[in-house]
Design a protein around this nucleic acid. Structure first.
Lengths: 342, 342
DNA sequence: CCGTCGTCTGTAACCGGTTACATAGACGCG
DNA sequence: CGCGTCTATGTAACCGGTTACAGACGACGG
């Protein structure tokens, strides 16, 4: 039983406005949406009524009848700090500029949960941006809902979808060349988690770069998981084994920072004794003087949104199913070269 | 392995399922939503049809008829890096755990745009989380849509809304006491932007703490804007004037880091010559050894979501219009005390 | 054998917008 | 004066779900 002491501030509907302005709902709709075939007097009356009733259109109803929600679903893995914020911020900026909203849904490595998350977005988003580096190609294909425009970021290829990819091999190649050029020879790669596509490409890129630019040199890989502690553990392992190392190529910045800290705590000078490099160029890297390659995460997110919106608003164009590669740029800082005063 | 016979691009609706299973839409709806009054045979037939058609319920339509969207609108100012990601992550975690989505909308300092953003969420979210530290109380009251449950974060009070607030005065008080206890006397506060409620409270907190704990000491305030450069500029100003200073109390971490860098470039030792403190404890602060107060941003976001969802699902309870204060905790690092090996 | 009850199902009216189509006037013209 | 055109408006059918209500049917008790 509804016992409302005061009058309930239930939002006005378009029919309330129509009644108040003594016109039909069609005229209200036309007036509010700026259609041309509305008499100026009618439009004025409608606008006045809408304002006086505090009418705000019901976006849900609107998108149901238009089959257009002006929202973009974003499905990301459980990302850490800066990585997450940079990407989302780039997306948000671009989406906002085009009048779109972002509907977020995190997903935990599991492909089944990812599929679940994507399904639950049917009917509330116009398109999807999916980042699933840890899911294999067939798993991804099964999880992706059909019939909704989708952009993939750093995920396995899926036929017919647009994609944004970081050129991991080129990035690692630049790192390796830089280290070799500065005289380092005994390089070790601290890899990312198995099953992650970026981690895999960086590992392969490392081995390929070594084979190409320093044939004959041994190239070692230590397993990691993209987390800071993995970098520390990798250094501990190397020290335990007493192996000669003068360069550590981490698969991402956080592991590089872990390694950096462990090296310094062990009394080894960076970069004199050992050089350290990362990957991604999170903001933290600049503060810590970490040499790395810059990915421009925000731009990648923004670009993904821009392409998706373009595909949404010009469906006539080709399906946009191509992959755009972003080439990361080398950023040399003090973990590989002496500080030179600016 | 499934054969792709006829490729049906348009998604199936509940009526398609009903036709396929030779039942009414009502039965399909009941079967899929687990109502009890459905014959087991019917339910099985419906589920089979739904699966074979690849049916996924249309969330938009569903929320229209249920007047429930299971989405929470999030309106944030244009936040920087870690601050943004920490809060959003906390919210996302909590929302996901309760089966809610987050609908993001950035807003640029302008109150009018904020109002716009909130209005555009009518009908697609069940509740709103708003963080508007830069809008004054009356502006906020006008912008907030009526009739939708709202939680405020670090915003001016608005009657009848729940709120989460950081106890800025307590945080600054702890900082000031810590500095005074370590023998510093000539403290300077680098303030945040005018109009920002957190900035204002921290400034007032600084003056109050100085008056209380070090009466007679001069207490100076330099204007800033929460950005790194403002910290650098503040130091430049102090050096120009040749004023004696042994402690800089920045209104947030980024300005503290800017000041830290400027001091070191000027050849002044931190903490020996000058101590530096921040506010927020962004992850970066730990790496830079910055003494600060920790706000637990993620927890604040999560708590805001939890309270909002609670209010949504138990509307019978009291309107939840009270303010929850989070007391930040002092984190002492090397910018105020000598490094002692851990 | 009939009335009652409980279980299962279908019809149709919502939710709050948009818009195709029909229609009513106003106007111009032969 | 009759007819075609054009403009402004209203009616009602959507969009894709949920659910109140009513009806069909079988079981059960009297």
């Amino acid at each position: 039983m509804r016992e409302e002491g005061v009058l309930k501030p239930a939002s006005a509907t378009i029919r309330d406005v129509a009644r108040h302005a003594a016109v039909s709902v069609a005229s209200v709709s036309r007036a509010l949406n700026g259609h041309s075939n509305v008499h100026p007097d009618t439009r004025a009356r409608v606008l006045a009524s809408a304002k006086s009733l505090g009418y705000v259109p019901h976006a849900g109803a609107r998108s149901l009848s238009l089959a257009r929600s002006h929202a973009i679903g974003v499905v990301l893995p459980d990302l850490h700090g800066e990585f997450f914020s940079e990407i989302v911020r780039g997306m948000d900026r671009e989406a906002g500029a085009h009048g779109y909203h972002l509907l977020l849904s995190n997903m935990h490595a599991d492909a089944e949960l990812a599929a679940q998350a994507m399904r639950s977005m049917r009917g509330r988003v116009d398109g999807l941006i999916v980042m699933a580096p840890q899911i294999d190609a067939t798993g991804l294909d099964e999880a992706l809902p059909a019939g909704i425009p989708t952009m993939l970021i750093n995920s396995p290829d899926s036929t017919g979808r647009g994609a944004m990819r970081v050129d991991n091999r080129a990035g690692i190649d630049a790192i390796v060349r830089h280290l070799l050029a500065s005289g380092r020879r005994a390089l070790v790669h601290v890899a990312g988690p198995a099953g992650n596509i970026d981690a895999r490409e960086r590992r392969e890129g490392f081995l390929a770069a070594m084979a190409r630019h320093a044939p004959g040199q041994p190239s070692r890989v230590i397993e990691g998981n993209f987390r800071e502690e993995a970098g520390e553990r990798a250094v501990a392992t190397l020290l335990d084994e007493g192996e000669a190392v003068d360069g550590i190529v981490a698969a991402n910045d956080m592991m590089a920072l872990g390694a950096l800290q462990a090296l310094r705590e062990a009394g080894l000078d960076v970069p004199d004794a050992v050089a350290v490099t990362g990957f991604d160029d999170v903001p933290l890297a600049r503060y810590m003087g970490l040499t790395t390659v810059r990915v421009h995460l925000a731009d990648m997110g923004a670009r993904a949104v821009a392409r998706l919106i373009d595909a949404l608003e010009h469906p006539s164009d080709r399906p946009g199913g191509d992959t755009e590669w972003l080439t990361p740029t080398l950023v040399v800082r003090t973990t590989t070269t002496e500080r030179t005063d600016p």
